[in-house]
Amino acid sequence: MSRPILIYIDADACPVKAEIYKVAERHGLKTFVVANSFMQVPRDPMIERVIVPGGMNVADDWIAERAVEGDIVVTSDVPLADRAIKAGADVIAPNGRPFTEASIGMALATRNLMEDLRSAGAITGGPRPFSPRDRSAFLSALDLAIVRLKRRGFGAATT
């Protein structure tokens, strides 16, 4: 019996939760919606709401302590993505961009540079608005990650 694929959502600012729920249901995957405040989730035994205490990186820590090879983490938080990749999980940003071992170093460097610029008073403009194209790219990336994990022997959850 293969280990089930689990999906962890860094949910506080995730714009693709509804899409994740649909894809997870189609594939029979357990999904954890992790946030530091109450959030509506569908009434489904395969979707679990996890409310963590408030505080810096508490939701990230909860996810990073559990995500392992065969799991999928959905986050735009680069340090969390780095931790999840090091644990062997597949990581996808809500815009569909996969974080990988090959790309995470540059993503961390860019994040740190932008943080330094902002702390020095530079106006950096922030991320571009989320678009339908981002949503579509995310759905493709999520399906691809699930198919790739199933080929590697991971599977659906058993209820």
Rank of each mutant, 00 (worst) to 15 (best):
Arg3Ala: 15
Ile9His: 09
Asp10His: 07
Asp12Ser: 13
Ala13Ile: 10
Pro15Leu: 08
Val16Leu: 04
Val16Thr: 08
Tyr21Glu: 08
Lys22Thr: 12
Ala24Trp: 05
Glu25Val: 04
Arg26Trp: 04
Leu29Asp: 02
Lys30Cys: 12
Phe32Gly: 08
Val33Thr: 05
Ala35Glu: 05
Phe38Asn: 11
Val41Asn: 08
Arg43Ala: 15
Asp44Ile: 12
Met46Val: 04
Met46Ile: 02
Ile47Leu: 11
Ile51Leu: 03
Ile51Glu: 15
Pro53Val: 05
Asn57Cys: 06
Asn57Gln: 13
Val58Phe: 04
Asp60Trp: 06
Val68Met: 14
Thr75Gln: 03
Val78Ala: 07
Leu80Cys: 10
Ala81Thr: 01
Asp82Met: 12
Arg83Ala: 15
Ile85Ser: 01
Ile85Gln: 02
Lys86Glu: 10
Ala87Lys: 14
Ile92Cys: 07
Ala93Ile: 00
Asn95Glu: 01
Gly96Glu: 06
Arg97Cys: 02
Phe99Ser: 00
Thr100Lys: 01
Glu101Pro: 02
Ala102Ser: 07
Ala102Met: 00
Gly105Glu: 06
Leu108Trp: 04
Leu108Ile: 11
Ala109Ile: 02
Thr110Arg: 14
Arg111Pro: 10
Arg111Asp: 10
Arg111Lys: 12
Asn112Arg: 13
Glu115Ile: 07
Glu115Asn: 15
Asp116Thr: 12
Ser119Gly: 05
Ser119Gln: 14
Gly121Asn: 07
Ala122Trp: 11
Ala122Met: 14
Ile123Gln: 15
Gly125Met: 09
Gly125Leu: 11
Pro132Gln: 08
Arg133Asn: 06
Ser136Asn: 06
Ser136Ala: 13
Ala137Arg: 10
Ala137Thr: 02
Ser140Met: 09
Leu142Asp: 04
Leu142Phe: 08
Ile146His: 00
Lys150Pro: 01
Gly153Thr: 00
Phe154Tyr: 15
Ala157Gln: 09
